[in-house]
């Protein structure tokens, strides 16, 4: 199936700082795709490029197979977005704000549709309050209402839980899940919290200093059974033949003359070690490579 978004070798720098570096990824329809990275990792810049707010220096963006910069206005009709904070006109009511932004996409948006989205985001009855009087959570919900009011296929939500209390975070999380599950939206969401991604996203891309460091299904990326374990062995050829005919063969990820890398659960390391020794292998050392979570935590703490 054609991906809804395909990004190829996207790069952007501001003055001398490289904000996004040769980034490629694709998002399948119906996915909740997470951008994970600390502040300044390039999440917002990438999202802004996907929306035409920032112009890439290099690379290309395709949405439903169409090059974005060639049919920007047409493609934006099917995208709803909140970038960073859902800032709106404080002196206008929630209804007025929603109406203005809905009309910018479709001048004929019926009022019934506005009521409908207000119902979905739980703001019915508060629509006549001034936006400046809304709590942070209400502002985020109105932002989501603005993003989804024109029934877009794709929602791009940049840190939608930022600044919310735990209850607010849970509400927004449930709302996003429901938008994906019940309304069939494809959602690109960013966060600097891995836990958040784990709970919402089905696929994920980890960005660090503008560069992709991992991407794939969340379950795969966070599965302990996928831990990379490196065995330093004096001469791997001694055991190679037996290994390839054993049950451990499926866990072998890479091999070299003096090292073998397995993808397995850390609990199984002693068993594998015993087996290698049994086969005559001379193990010089065992190194378990970081899991994604460890890796992510390490980069967010530097």
């Amino acid at each position: 199936m054609e991906p809804i978004i395909a990004v190829e070798h996207l790069s952007k720098s501001f003055k001398k700082r490289l904000a996004v570096n040769d980034l490629s990824f694709s998002i399948a329809e119906g996915e909740v795709y997470g951008f994970l990275g600390q502040n300044g990792a390039g999440k917002s810049t990438t999202m802004r490029m996907l929306l035409g707010l920032i112009f890439p220096d290099k690379g290309a963006i395709f949405i439903r197979g169409q090059r974005f910069d060639n049919s920007k206005r047409h493609l934006l009709r099917s995208i709803g977005a909140i970038i960073e904070r859902p800032d709106m006109y404080g002196y206008l009511s929630g209804w007025d704000n929603l109406k203005i932004f809905a009309t910018l996409t479709d001048p004929n948006t019926p009022d019934a549709r506005l009521h409908e989205v207000l119902e979905v985001v739980g703001l019915n009855g508060r629509e006549n309050d001034k936006f400046s009087a809304y709590s942070q959570g209400m502002k985020q919900r109105l932002g989501i209402a603005v993003a989804m009011v024109n029934k877009p296929d794709l929602l791009i939500l940049d840190e939608p839980t930022n600044g919310l209390d735990p209850q607010g975070i849970a509400e927004i999380r449930n709302l996003i899940r429901s938008l994906s599950k019940d309304h069939g939206k494809t959602i690109l969401i960013s966060s600097h919290l891995l836990h958040e991604m784990e709970l919402i996203a089905s696929s994920m891309l980890v960005l660090h200093r503008g560069k992709k460091i991992a991407d794939g299904k969340v379950n795969d990326l966070l599965n302990p059974a996928q831990t990379l374990v490196e065995f330093a062995i004096q001469d791997t050829t001694i055991i190679m033949d037996q290994l390839l005919h054993s049950a451990w063969a499926s866990t072998l990820d890479q091999h070299a003359a003096d090292a073998l890398v397995f993808k397995l659960h850390p609990d199984r390391i002693p068993l594998l070690n015993a087996w290698i020794v049994e086969q005559g292998g001379r193990v010089k050392g065992i190194r378990s490579k970081h899991s994604l979570e460890d890796y992510f935590l390490s980069i967010t703490h530097d």
């Binding site: 802004r48 707010l53 206005r73 934006l76 960073e84 800032d87 006109y89 910018l104």
Partner: peptide, 10 residues
């Protein structure tokens, strides 16, 4: 902050 919201519209 409304400029970015306006410009994400078609």
């Amino acid at each position: 902050g409304t400029l970015r919201l306006i410009l994400t519209r078609p």
